[in-house]
């Protein structure tokens, strides 16, 4: 089954929409869902043109497609466990929060907190992702714990903060402090990064581009060839400010 949601033109286009209801499983019972626009509750049909093609008996066969201006829609795919969502344009904050299964594909850019506290599943972002990509919540000890986030563009600051499990793969560059407070999982940045892995406890990070402002508290141990990336890298252990035992590989 395929559900196409095309956003309507709104009087106040900057108002955020909170649409955690948009997950494939919910469309099994119809499209009568509630979302918030600002501080008002709205039905899905007040904000979207809804087209449904085909039928489905189980949620894993449901594909949700978002079209139009979706850059202010938050929480799409929150707690999603199966099925797939395709966003043709940009998407607002908190896309794929707590996601545990299924696939989200974003053809445009993603706003902050993409895949926050994710547990499983896959997020593909064809454009750039903003700050706090694949991270956790304020005060919480663990961020993303499983699954995969792949960003084909670049990300903002604090990418993969508190990463505890799963894989984060950035094809472009990451901003300031990628992998800060990392305690597990894998972070791959093909482009450049600034001050990576501050205060990391555990986990591993590979940076293929240039590292700016490398922190003084990483201990260089040896050089290693990384066959999957066809490079030789310096391997650092750290963060020693923090009894850390993480691995940071930077192209030699």
């Amino acid at each position: 089954m395929r559900v196409i949601l095309e956003s309507k033109v709104r009087a106040k286009p900057n108002l955020p929409i909170e649409a955690e209801a948009i997950i494939p499983r919910n469309f099994l019972k119809g499209t009568d869902l509630l979302v918030y626009e600002g501080n008002k509750e709205r039905t899905l049909s007040e904000l979207f043109w809804i087209f449904v093609e085909g039928t489905a008996v189980s949620p894993e066969n449901i594909e949700v497609i978002l079209k139009g201006d979706t850059s202010r829609i938050k929480r799409v795919g929150e707690y999603m466990d199966t099925g797939s969502i395709v966003i043709e344009g940009d998407i607002g904050m908190h896309c794929g929060n707590f996601m545990s299964g299924g696939t989200i594909e974003i053809r445009g850019n993603a706003d902050s907190w993409l895949g926050r506290e994710m547990r499983g599943g896959t997020i593909l972002c064809r454009g750039n992702a903003s700050h706090y990509c694949a991270t956790g919540y304020r005060g919480e000890k663990k961020g993303m714990q499983g699954g995969k986030v792949e960003v084909f563009g670049s990300t903002g600051d604090f990418c993969a903060e508190y990463l505890a499990g799963g894989t984060v793969h950035i094809h472009g560059s990451a901003g300031d402090f990628p992998g800060v407070e990392m305690r597990g999982g894998e972070l791959i940045i093909e482009g450049d990064a600034t001050r990576p892995c501050g205060n990391m406890k555990s986990g591993s990070c590979v940076i293929l581009g240039t590292v700016h402002d490398m922190l003084p508290t990483f201990e260089k141990t040896r050089q290693r060839v990384l066959p999957e990336w066809k490079i030789t890298a310096d391997v650092y252990k750290g963060d020693v400010a923090n009894r850390g035992k993480g691995t940071l590989c930077v192209r030699s």
Binding site: G198, T217, A241
Partner: peptide
Amino acid sequence: DYAVLSALRA
């Protein structure tokens, strides 16, 4: 500042 604080901690 961050680098200096990290260094002091170490």
